[in-house]
């Protein structure tokens, strides 16, 4: 590459990189983070309340008819093939609102049911996706769970 071409490339990138960051911010706000993009993770959230910390957890609870048998499991247990770093995003994208959960096709439901059956040891008739908000506070003995509140529940019937 000639010096002139390299210089032009640098000028173009010095303009492009801040612009793409702005676009990533805008698209990320209205839709999801675009890809490919030249960004690192922001980890901008601050999980804090009064003098403690607030954390949201999702639990998958499966049961048979009349709850004769039930089993709850974390997303990382239900989806062991998905890397832990992708689990929160996967759960947020597919299981955080009622409409998208109810729109899961029969194929998708069968896949979820089969995954859950493998873990629970029985074939479930329903799956509850429960969102819990947990409040921790620091004590001399370390972090202690103050309370856990159910902040959302979506049910899939198989």
């Amino acid at each position: 590459m000639s010096r002139k071409t390299v210089r032009t490339l640098f000028i173009a990138l010095l303009i492009y990189l801040p612009l793409q960051y702005a676009v990533v911010g805008i698209v990320g706000y209205y839709d999801a983070e675009p890809w490919p993009a030249f960004v690192f993770p922001g980890f901008k959230s601050v999980y804090v309340y009064d003098d403690g910390f607030e954390i949201t957890r999702t639990v998958f609870d499966v049961e048979t008819v009349h709850r004769q048998r039930s089993h709850d499991m974390s997303p990382q247990v239900l989806f062991p093939e998905i890397p832990l770093s992708q689990i929160p995003g996967f759960v947020r994208t597919h299981f955080s609102d009622d409409e998208s959960v109810q729109n899961i096709s029969e194929d998708g439901k069968a896949w979820l049911r089969s995954n859950a059956a493998d873990i629970a040891g029985f074939t479930p008739n329903a799956m509850h996706i429960i969102e819990l908000t947990e409040y921790y506070r620091q004590t001399g003995d370390g972090a202690v769970l103050d309370m856990a509140i159910e902040t959302g529940r979506i049910t899939i019937l198989f």
Binding site: F43, K44, S45, V46, Y47, F53, I55, T56, P88, E134
Partner: peptide, 27 residues
Amino acid sequence: PKILGGWLDPSTQAAQGHLFNQFFIRE
């Protein structure tokens, strides 16, 4: 984004919050 998210607010300890999240939720 950390500046916008409040990491520099002395009343919040964001890194500690992330530690809790990784420890308790992601085990």
